[in-house]
Nucleic acid binder design. Sequence first.
DNA 1: ACCCCGCCTTCACAATTTCTGCACATATGT
DNA 2: ACATATGTGCAGAAATTGTGAAGGCGGGGT
Lengths: 221, 221
Amino acid sequence: MAKKILVIDDEPKIVEICSDYLHAAGFETVTAGDGPRGLALARSQQPDLIVLDLMLPGMDGLDLCRSLRHESNVPIIMLTARIEETDKLIGLELGADDYITKPFSPRELVMRVRTVLRRAGGDPSSAVIRAGDLTLDRSRYEVDLPGRTVVLTATEFELLATMMSQPGRIFSRAQLLSAVRGVAFESYERAIDSHIRNLRRKLEPGEYIVTVHGIGYKLEG
Amino acid sequence: MAKKILVIDDEPKIVEICSDYLHAAGFETVTAGDGPRGLALARSQQPDLIVLDLMLPGMDGLDLCRSLRHESNVPIIMLTARIEETDKLIGLELGADDYITKPFSPRELVMRVRTVLRRAGGDPSSAVIRAGDLTLDRSRYEVDLPGRTVVLTATEFELLATMMSQPGRIFSRAQLLSAVRGVAFESYERAIDSHIRNLRRKLEPGEYIVTVHGIGYKLEG
DNA sequence: ACCCCGCCTTCACAATTTCTGCACATATGT
DNA sequence: ACATATGTGCAGAAATTGTGAAGGCGGGGT
């Protein structure tokens, strides 16, 4: 299946060129000319990668990048006008996966897109997972939320990690159970309810876990 | 002076990507495509840090990791395949300084390399590790804490040194055992419990060692 | 060679933490 | 209002860790 790339830039020319070359390289593309529309498309289209201009009218690319990072782990390639800005980007630890300085050749763009996709494409379980203002660190077995660190039990931790790996996706109790206890584990599915409750209590007053009546649970997203 | 990084992986593309980004980040790099060559380079080049793929032709990455550990204290970052659902502790069983799951982003690699180097950096000449209140002196097999000096046994010392090398990071019993006994010695994992207990008693009344139920132990931090 | 002593390992059992299963109260959707 | 699904409190079950004690092994001294 073709990977979907979202291109966000205020210069129609740039957008068109990027889109054309990415198409030619076998990618599906979606485009936006400003920040707000880009953010909306990122949410509705769930692209596999985003190419984002640093300078945008209406919403700064920097803010947009930060917003996007809060909701998903989608790979982002930043387009920057100057080399100096590049240093800032790295220094700020924006969370972009790569950057390209303008002017750039379309060939280079395609190459970078392929490269980033190859190594960042859908990795559900790295040591650190972020979703919204939750940050989960496997190597420390801790979850940070604004202002404090929460200690979770192993089961609660795996439960949260599973949901955080794909914010917004709905998981059935059976799926959550197998994620926590390994495959084919016969048990009372509603034991999950108890763990969800304990998790919610520890995450208070935040409302992170959403109940989907009749289906299961999901992380807000 | 630029730090020298040795990258060992059988996939030329991976090696190239790592090498490029490390170069861009100001490191000097040396590369090897298989285990034996990697071991030889580690000996002849004496790199400041090694990035090592877990899966290698000719010589398993894990064996190589152990061999390297026997000869020097060079920091090692392991590259591992995607974590299986059932194997939530794969990262803890490696006995390396850190690990990264593939696919990974270049910023993540560079960040981890910097972190590990900073951790291991200190002054190589004085075998002293500090973490919070604790100061550990390898040349004397002693630990200083506020107000007094405690004498430890060899096992207790290595145990504490391992945890102090990365405060806050969790270590499984298996990992602590291999850190203390060199390799993954087949032995009763809960022997670690006894040493932890003895360590705690000697460190009283401080609460330095934290139990993470179902996972292992870690140093506060 | 023999004994003593410190250290590591192992075991059995107690203490503690976490998980599961229920019963019943609430909430949701038709 | 009815049928179904979810939230909650709790107690027993299950799993994990803490602890004290005993045995093994090896080094040093006699």
